[in-house]
Design a binder for these strands. Structure first.
Lengths: 353, 353
DNA sequence: TTGTATGCGTTATCAA
DNA sequence: TTGATAACGCATACAA
């Protein structure tokens, strides 16, 4: 049943040449040193036998596997599928294949998967795993395998990174709210153990400062996870203590969804009694109730860029200094309304709770 | 920089034994043939040198790569990420790694990716690509590589398949509508070039028959794609010609979303003037307006089962006959309401359009 | 321009 | 129980 695979030797025999000639003829880089007539014969033989090279053997011989390990924290997070597609497409166009692994946001898992990838001799790593801890990033590096980070960064400058320009996106978000009269704006941050959580929180402070707005302590609450329930809990706390709050910028869309829920619990409707802005523009964010105003980040493009960056690194070592920032922009939908000046009814209800 | 990888030889030297002894000592299956004391020394040496086996060399020697090619039509379709996770988890627990590829629903792509996977000597293939055409499935089989299908099937009985029990799910969907008084139920089918499209349409006819309900020709319209816009166009046509229609079962959730849009266009609101049931229970289906009543299919579990099936096949060849069916069940949310007997207002509006 | 020889790191066979 | 040896399929340095 398991048909014996055709090898170079058999092609060589059929073509009446030495295996090494076949090897040369079939490789684009050495093809030019073989006689056109021989080339033709070899190609005909290869076609005839339906020859397919054994990349495993080739990898062993050359020391390059033409495969790249891709480490994703959670593939079911809607942010990542487009990133992975971008990576795959970017790699494929250079003859590389992605080995995609899911760590489930579990450090032990991640370590295991990294070992597996390294044992399989990946030529490089693209990591979207988001722990701020960089111990695991080092393990690739220690073995001389180049690493590109997506959607996170690390101080070590040997490590390339592709990021969305969250500073710009956050600035647009705050600007949009400010332009509609919001002054008391809150932020539900993501977990501070994750790079994105830290980054966006800082970007929020910066953006508020840029717009001359004050950020009282109680205006920022950190969610325990990047999930709807994490967002609900944090937003509940925020809304209860920051009574003047008329708008929230959430660290991602899932948390924004949690803000919807918390607002509803407290008898406030979005966008009339509370404006909400998300982050990521995940698929179907436009289908929520209300459709979510959010900051779009170029997920697919980030994947493509990460792939290219890694390949450049692999091929000639030319690398940009510092992280590559990709543009973000706000997408206006229905979850933001003009700020009403005072909100007596709401204050009353809140106080009663 | 690129640290030379430690090999068996070096471990052997440090331990003062022959490389083949190290190989034996480090493989769980031959470990028992080595002297406990030697074993200890070898393990110590391996640890000391931080040895990691080169799986590429091992694959070349043994002819088994312990990697499985996974062919997905579109990773950004929310149905697939959980399937892929299931596959990865299932494979990992048996020491296999997934090579995930995205075909973009393009046959040429799919052929290329398959060639790539085969060149990389995958031990098996899991294909979720959904073309009813089975030519591409044959190319794996021809080379003696076992194939498992997910979410589709094919007549060839050499090919294992894992499917959701769409017949049961469809029957529940129709039953639910019928129990609420719906008699004139329509179906927006998926493209008939895709297995799921055909299957679910047939399941719809069967379920309607089971419930003693009539299906006039105009009650079933085929969408051109499994997308919202495909669903909108088809539902528009259906609602315009099948005037009595009070409920639609859509072939998937995206199409159901299209039904929402088409209903809105025609001045009908869901669920009051039109009930809609989706299929798949994609993530965030509960966030739609209204929250979508839909048939849940066990995506993650399908992936796990597919992986197990393939591994069983690889290891001893014991295989079930016929496809493996995994249970589905309806998830009731807000997009279905009790049927109103006659709908004069609606008829009037429709006729005016 | 082509052929010869060798080795990549591992494992399987055989002998000791 | 361990060691020596060969081979998996390919690519390359070198010779012709």
């Amino acid at each position: 049943m398991a048909t014996k695979r055709v090898t170079l030797r058999e092609v060589a025999e059929l073509a009446g040449v030495n295996p090494s000639t076949v090897s040369r003829a079939l490789s684009p880089f050495s093809r030019h040193l073989v006689n056109p007539e021989t080339l033709r014969r070899v190609q005909a033989a290869a076609l005839e036998l339906d020859y397919a090279p054994n990349r495993v053997a080739s990898s062993l011989r050359t020391g390059r596997s033409h495969s790249i390990g891709v480490v994703i924290p959670d593939l079911t997070n809607p942010l990542f599928p487009p990133v992975v597609r971008g990576i795959s497409d970017g790699l494929a166009s250079a003859g590389y294949t992605a080995l995609v692994t899911n760590t489930d946001r579990n450090v032990e898992n991640e370590r295991t998967m990294l070992e597996t990838l390294l044992e399989r001799q990946v030529d490089g790593l693209i990591m979207a795993s988001a722990a701020t801890d960089d111990e695991l990033v080092a393990i690739g590096l220690d073995r001389g395998v180049p690493v590109v980070l997506v959607n996170r960064m690390v101080d070590d400058h040997r490590i390339l990174a592709v990021l969305s320009d969250d500073w710009h996106g956050m600035n647009e978000a705050v600007g949009h709210l400010a332009s509609l009269g919001h002054r008391s704006i809150g932020h539900v941050a993501g977990p501070l153990g994750i790079a994105t959580g830290v980054l966006r929180r800082q970007a929020f402070f910066d953006a508020m400062a840029t717009h001359g707005l004050d950020v009282p302590d109680r205006a920022v609450v950190v969610a325990s996870t990047f999930t709807e329930s994490g967002g609900t809990a944090a937003a509940r706390e925020l809304l209860r203590s920051f009574l003047a709050c008329t708008a929230i910028v959430a660290a991602n869309d899932l948390i924004a969804l949690g803000c919807y829920a918390a607002a509803a619990e407290l008898g406030r409707s979005c966008p009339d009694d509370l404006s909400v802005v998300g982050f990521n523009d995940m698929p179907f964010a436009d289908k929520f109730c209300p459709p979510l105003t959010t900051v779009r980040i170029p997920a697919y493009e980030m994947g493509v860029r990460a792939a290219r960056l890694l390949i450049d690194r692999l091929q000639d070592g030319s690398v940009p200094v510092g992280p590559v920032l990709l543009p973000t922009r706000i997408v206006v939908r229905g979850s933001v309304a003009r700020a009403e000046a005072p909100l007596p009814a709401y204050r009353h209800r809140s106080a009663a709770t």
